[in-house]
Computed example of a mutant assay.
Amino acid sequence: MSSLKDKKNKLREEYRRRRDAFHRQLDMATRGLAFRRPPTPLVKLIEQSDVIALYSAIGSEAPTARLAEYLAEMGKITAFPEVVKNSPLEFRKVSNIDLLEAGFRNIAEPNANCPAITPDLIIAPMIAFDRSMNRLGQGGGYYDRTFEKYPEAIRIGLAWSVQETDAVPVQPHDIPLHMIVTESEIIQKVDMNL
């Protein structure tokens, strides 16, 4: 029997392929419209939050650029993560996406002039997810450490619907999400009362 780490790695490979294939078949108009405006349950959470943490989407990840524009229109404070190796993510206030520059693994991060800030709501990327609100990330544990650092922050996963799996293998340090938003559905914890 393979280890849990091996199972997670195989799942990552499979769901990266699925996500990439799905993304490739989308026309440019659909890509541009996807995740442009958040669904009503997420809008309610955004309205209740002052600081919203986004991620810089890479490759076939669910895009966040349009969502950043939407948050700016709403007058929300937007933060992006800075990676500090083997630590929780450090969120920095970004008033202009032009303040992002190549960082860890060449992913766009806030520059040093952006002040550190505590998020009320964290929107996280993922490779796979399940209906129990578990997410499978890249495997570095950055978001789990971050969720532990900010236990009061609402945790939202953003993904394409093809990234859903029956069950994500979990370990004690894995922290579930409160809501998952795809291009076609919202999955949320029953006790969120939205």
Rank of each mutant, 00 (worst) to 15 (best):
Y150H: 14
K44D: 14
Y150E: 00
P125H: 05
N96I: 01
W160H: 02
K189I: 14
W160D: 12
S87W: 03
R92S: 01
E109V: 01
T78L: 10
E148C: 10
D130H: 06
I107V: 12
R66C: 10
M192G: 07
A72Q: 14
K93H: 14
R36P: 00
S60Q: 05
E101P: 00
W160Y: 12
L177D: 09
N106G: 04
A167L: 11
L158M: 15
S184R: 15
S87L: 08
R155V: 13
Q138A: 08
V181R: 01
R16P: 02
V168R: 01
I127T: 11
H178K: 02
E69N: 15
P119H: 06
I46S: 03
P39T: 02
L33S: 13
P88E: 04
V190K: 15
T64V: 10
H178C: 08
I117Q: 06
E183F: 02
M74Y: 06
A116T: 15
Y150T: 05
N96R: 13
M126L: 13
T30M: 14
T146S: 04
L42D: 01
P81L: 14
P88Q: 04
T118H: 11
Q188N: 06
P38W: 11
P119N: 04
N86Y: 06
E185F: 09
G75R: 09
A128K: 00
I180F: 04
I186A: 11
L194N: 14
I117P: 00
P169H: 08
K76M: 00
C114V: 09
L158S: 06
Q25L: 04
M74T: 09
E183H: 07
T146V: 05
N134E: 10
